[in-house]
Nucleic acid binder design. Structure first.
Lengths: 240, 240
DNA sequence: CCAAAAGTGTTTTTTCTACACCCATGA
DNA sequence: TCATGGGTGTAGAAAAAACACTTTTGG
């Protein structure tokens, strides 16, 4: 009634590739669940916490410098989630900018997260649940934080950014309003440079960058904010 | 470099008592950290997941029927968080309505979360960090969900509800606006009954209740919502 | 000059805050 | 009738959606 457990960390690494949201997974060669697709991760080391561990494990699959954001999703602990042993997982969301193309091992591939279909077909263990949680977290945070920085290249046009938001959110986004909202919130700033038009012509697009490249909550709205001039201790920011 | 670990669950149970936000903790009698204040919890059992476990553990400290909401906060895993053993904790937020007064064991007390002071003075291990995370999560979710239901009695006046929000958020809240915001979002509904005025007189207050007593995201705002008539798969709800 | 793509101006809608005012009760 | 608390009406402000229109390019 309280045996020792193994503790693993797992990461759902998401990237927008070719206009669709995709997740990195590798194909298991050995039982259990051989042939199925698993998330990168591994057992927690003795002298590291879960955050350090997931970064270490990820470094074995992708160039860590390409992972622009990592955050904890939660614990997955069903007693039967891995057959034979009691293994508890701390799951993470990882994000890679759309212009990166990290080298990955031969057993590792990107998988499209199709809209209505299951998030990761033929997934090992409970890894499909983790991918679903990662996608939901990304969608939620894109709306009220500056998390877009983790999906976008250093510099980009508004329509390129719009395409990223469309792919991640799964619904239409107006480039016009996207620019205005993000600019008002001081999330974006113009670089001054412009991108050359495509072969069909068209006005050259201005280039933008994110003002910050670390997570920041930008929509304090959420109502019930402190009155204009008031004490208030400053909430949110630790949302999760 | 990957020894077995112990896994514990811990709960920061919060309640508004006497107008202030408080947390339930018990005083350790034995080393390590004897004399310090610890959160309720215990080791994960072999045949339960962390959610089941925290409910079981809490039942030993308080009447579980009084705990109206439980949610996972995250993993605390510093290698040295508990001396001598490798013990990983999954932390939870628990909420008790302000009109409950659950019986608790003799070593267990409610502790005020004072505004500027540390959240739990003389806390054992890393439990003060957990309490801080719980308070921040509560504050954030009060603003964009119907989580108030977990702090309030079944029926209440608007000014009583306002006092709960003030205690939890730590800043002034207008009763007028609180009522309108929550009513528009269909979080509150009048019961039809009224509360008798206090000794000083005054108009009798109408009684309200929460329409739902399970967590719901009510502020889909957060911008970048799907256009009026659009596909969109419905985000948020899994925020964390 | 025309099509394509980008960006700006302006209106409308929604949602909240602020504040004045009216309502119901006990002493 | 007056002090006390409760509730409504309404004006203002902020932010975002929607859409028309202008700008800049390539053929």
């Amino acid at each position: 009634m309280a045996s020792p457990t193994e503790h693993e960390v797992l990461a759902a690494v998401l990237q927008i590739r070719g206009g669709t949201l995709q997740v990195l997974a590798w194909q298991r060669a050995l039982p259990p669940d051989s042939g199925r697709w698993a998330l990168p991760g591994g057992l927690l080391g003795d002298d590291e916490d879960v955050e350090q561990s997931v970064r270490r494990q990820l470094a074995e699959k992708v160039d860590l410098r390409e992972v622009t954001h990592v955050e904890q999703l939660g614990v997955f602990s069903r007693p039967d989630r891995v057959p034979g042993v009691r293994r508890i997982a701390t799951a993470f969301l990882g994000l890679v900018p759309s212009d990166a193309d990290p080298a990955v091992p031969p057993d590792t591939h990107w998988h499209v997260l199709a809209a209505p279909a299951p998030v990761l077909a033929n997934a090992a263990f409970d890894h499909a649940d983790i991918v679903a949680a990662a996608r939901d977290r990304l969608r939620a945070k894109l709306s009220y934080t500056n998390l877009g920085f983790a999906l976008a290249p250093r510099e980009f046009t508004i329509s390129a950014l719009r395409d990223l938001y469309v792919a991640a959110l799964g619904h239409p986004v107006s480039a016009t309003n996207l620019q205005r909202v993000l600019t008002r919130r001081a999330v974006l700033e113009p670089t001054g440079a412009v991108a050359p038009p495509g072969p069909a012509g068209g006005r050259p697009a201005a280039l933008f960058r994110f003002t910050d490249r670390t997570l920041r909550v930008t929509d304090a709205s959420a109502v019930l904010r402190a009155p204009s001039g008031s004490p208030g201790e400053g909430t949110r920011g630790a949302v999760p």
